[in-house]
């Protein structure tokens, strides 16, 4: 929401209404094609998921915005109730809302508003794992998204993501732009199983028109993952501007920090058709520089309300790679291993 003006400003200035409509119509057609492609996936992978169930859950968000020297923090505390309807065969419908409890950041945000509603499908096509999603994603984006993951060896994998999205927010009133923005990343992952340590590097084009790269190193512990990351983007790096050399651009555009993901108890659970539970995890990200040109850089969106760096994009029962080869965080009664 904070970044909405970037999107809206660009769209209002450059794109006439008629042209917007044609983009919207074209993108809808692309979405239908994507859906048909996903539905025509190999049948053998469809039998791997569990029987249908629905989970209601709630987590929370804590934002400590260190913007001002003369104030400790601007605090934001939201509850994030949501649901996940596992329809079987790795089809899923998921939604989430935000209920603001404390907001010292902005007066323009509603107390309660829906933030995500996503239909997604995971499948295995040959050696490649695919996940297609359509709907309203996090980060106030809506549209289509396709993710691919290719494990080459137990320690090496490649990944790619492509999305076509627009702005959709209900945080401070209805805001929408046509799906005109392409995001795409490609990268590689190395997993050192002896230390449950993962190295990840991606380059890509991101939501706020920037492009750049990101490198992460994370170690997966029992029920927690801790990682360091560094990222660079062309906007903060002022790449191509007069008087800015490549070395200067690297220094200007570089930022980093640490990330922590803690899987929330209880770790032993009973799985029924309808379940009420806490959110799967709590995540924390710290950015050293933190100004807008860094904070908004290298941004994508989540297509699952419980997506996190520990579990990655795919379900544990479908993709056995990386942290999915560790002991599961959640043990369900009567089952050897499910997530």
């Amino acid at each position: 929401m904070v970044n909405s003006w970037l999107e809206l400003g660009a769209q209002k200035k450059d794109t006439p209404v008629k042209h917007n409509y044609s983009i919207f119509r074209r993108n809808c057609l692309m979405g239908i094609v994507l859906a048909v492609l996903l539905m025509s996936g190999p049948q053998r992978s469809w039998g791997q998921s569990e029987k249908p169930s629905i989970d209601f859950f709630s987590g929370f968000e804590v934002g400590l915005y260190d913007f001002y020297f003369y104030q400790k923090y601007n605090v934001v505390f939201n509850l994030t109730p949501g649901f996940k309807w596992n329809m079987g065969n790795h089809w899923q419908l998921a939604g989430q809302a935000r209920l603001t409890v404390i907001n010292q950041l902005s007066n323009d945000v509603r107390r309660f508003y829906p933030s995500m509603l996503v239909l997604s499908k995971e499948l295995k096509a040959g050696p490649v794992y695919l996940k297609g999603s359509v709907g309203a994603f996090s980060n106030s984006r809506y549209g289509f998204d396709l993710k691919a993951f290719l494990p080459v060896t137990p320690w090496l994998a490649f990944e790619a993501q492509a999305g076509l999205t627009g702005l959709l927010t209900m945080a401070g009133g209805w805001g929408m732009s046509p799906m005109g923005r392409f995001t795409g990343t490609v990268g590689g992952d190395i997993y050192l199983s002896r230390w449950n340590t993962q190295l990840r590097g991606v380059v890509g084009k991101y939501v706020y028109t920037d492009w750049g790269f990101q490198a992460e190193a994370m170690r997966h512990f029992n029920h927690a993952t801790v990682g360091l990351y560094a990222k660079w983007n062309n906007i903060a790096g002022q790449l191509g501007q007069e008087g800015v050399s490549l070395t200067q651009s690297l220094a200007k555009g570089m930022d980093g920090g640490f990330k922590v993901t803690i899987m929330l108890p209880p770790y032993k659970r009973t799985h029924r058709t309808v379940n009420f539970r806490p959110a799967s995890h709590y995540s924390l990200t710290y950015l050293v520089r933190g100004m807008a040109q860094y904070r908004d850089a290298n941004q994508l969106y989540y297509t699952d309300p419980e997506e996190n760096m520990r579990d990655g994009w795919f379900s544990r029962d479908l993709l056995k790679w990386g942290s999915h080869t560790m002991e599961p965080d959640f043990i369900y009664k009567g089952k050897e291993e499910t997530e």
Binding site: F69, Q71, K72, W195, F258
Partner: peptide, 29 residues
């Protein structure tokens, strides 16, 4: 994260007068 490396992050509070209210406290860090 490994037995050979430690990492930490520290925030030390600094006292000052708050710009708007004039209140004295550990506003800076």
């Amino acid at each position: 994260p490994f037995e050979w490396i430690e990492l930490s992050f520290t925030s030390t509070r600094r006292k000052d007068t708050r710009a708007v209210t004039g209140e004295v406290g550990f506003w800076r860090k």
